[in-house]
Design a protein around this nucleic acid. Structure first.
Lengths: 141, 141
DNA sequence: CTACAGGTTGAAGTGAACTTTAAGTCAAGT
DNA sequence: ACTTGACTTAAAGTTCACTTCAACCTGTAG
């Protein structure tokens, strides 16, 4: 029988706040632990579970997505079995985000080097470019 | 005298909702326009201003940052004069974000290919790696 | 016995960027 | 006169991931 942890000890060891742990439990991300005199007592394995949750959060999953990561699979399936479907979508999103970042850097560089006489002209040029790129794609006949 | 636009027309032409335009005005991002019978009447130049605002938003500036972009400089200075200070910081942020994205993709790929027997082992390995990379950097003596 | 550290709860608050709602005004068309 | 559509306002609601609050309970130390 592993030594049970109080919520405060789990918080210390995981780096989370106790309030976050309670919140995760309330929203179904964590199972309800045993109680001693009304207080939560956690199996140390909770720390592994929280690590997986942190991993998911750091990968940009919402808590809702993380819940699916836990719920939609048989009890102890490893990440290699859980991840494929959801991770593929996430990677597409990440690639899109990376592309956007590159585009933003380009736009910032351009704007910094603009030759406009005043701010209104900057606005006009931005509008012109927006109209160009959304209106007709490359070759109007 | 340019033809004044109602808020609805500005909304149509800018792609924003009227509520957003009112919100921007309330929070000081847009000047208070003239009124006719209580209704806002905009100089079409507002569209250029909104374009600059959209540009700033798309570059990842918060509305607060955008406000500074407008306020901290003499009336009509072009972006080339407004941008340098704030854009440099933003580019650093963007580079950091791009690096994080790359790191996330790597972590996702790793996790998809993990050899763990069960989810708890995944958690253990994540914890081990986290401890490794934060605890001692590269070479403990 | 009392103080105290830590735990418990539900409800409300946070911040960003808006949207929605309710109730009202106004000018033009029929 | 009446209806319609677009506008006006302040206030409250939305989403996400929590935190903070107020009021309470419990085991241990002195």
């Amino acid at each position: 029988m592993p030594v049970p942890l109080t919520i405060g000890e789990v918080a210390r060891q995981s780096g989370l706040r106790a309030s976050a742990i309670r919140f995760y439990e309330k929203t179904g991300l964590l199972p309800k632990p045993a109680r001693a005199a009304g207080q939560r007592r956690y199996d140390p394995a909770i720390l592994d579970r929280l690590a997986v949750l942190e991993f998911a959060k750091q990968c940009g999953f919402t808590l809702d997505e993380a819940r699916h990561l836990f719920e939609d699979f048989p009890g102890d399936a490893p990440l290699s079995q859980r991840l494929p479907g959801i991770a593929a979508k996430k990677i597409v999103q990440l690639d899109a985000l990376a592309a956007r970042i590159a585009a933003i850097k380009e736009r910032l560089a351009r704007a910094q080097a603009c030759q406009c006489a005043d701010l209104q002209e900057c606005g006009r040029q931005i509008r012109r470019r927006a109209a160009d790129s959304s209106g007709s794609k490359s070759a109007p006949r």
